[in-house]
């Protein structure tokens, strides 16, 4: 699969990555190259094969509400926030896309 500049643009927008023109050019060619290699998978007949997305035991794991957990303040949030205002996380204004 050849990745052109439009596709790179679309994917970078989906991934919220600002790329320079140089990066766009390089990624288009590198991704095309990598996908070319990846397409060797087309040699494998996978008809009727269930995909595997994880390799864990199929048995439920739950959290129980009865278990009382001591709640501490979320220090990781408050100490790392780039901008904080009255315990709100502050960002420049959100305009809807």
């Amino acid at each position: 699969m050849k990745i052109d500049k439009n596709r790179v643009d679309y994917v970078a927008t989906l991934a919220r990555l600002k790329l320079s023109e140089e990066e766009e050019r390089v990624y288009a060619s590198q991704l095309s190259h990598i996908l070319g290699y990846i397409e060797t998978l087309n040699q494998v007949n996978t008809e009727g094969i269930e995909p595997t997305y994880n390799v864990i035991d199929h048995k439920n794991i739950f959290r129980s509400e009865d278990l009382k957990i001591e709640k501490e303040e979320n220090k990781s949030l408050f100490e790392n926030a780039p901008e904080l205002k009255d315990s709100y996380i502050k960002v420049p204004k959100i305009i809807d896309v």
Binding site: I61, F62, S87
Partner: peptide
């Protein structure tokens, strides 16, 4: 009060993981 009912899991801190609440199910 704002952000009081939060922890690293529900604020998407690095490395934390979800565990399903049985009561919700």
């Amino acid at each position: 009060p704002q952000n009081q009912n939060t922890c690293p899991v529900c604020t998407g801190m690095p490395g934390v993981l979800p565990v399903l609440n049985k009561e919700a199910v």
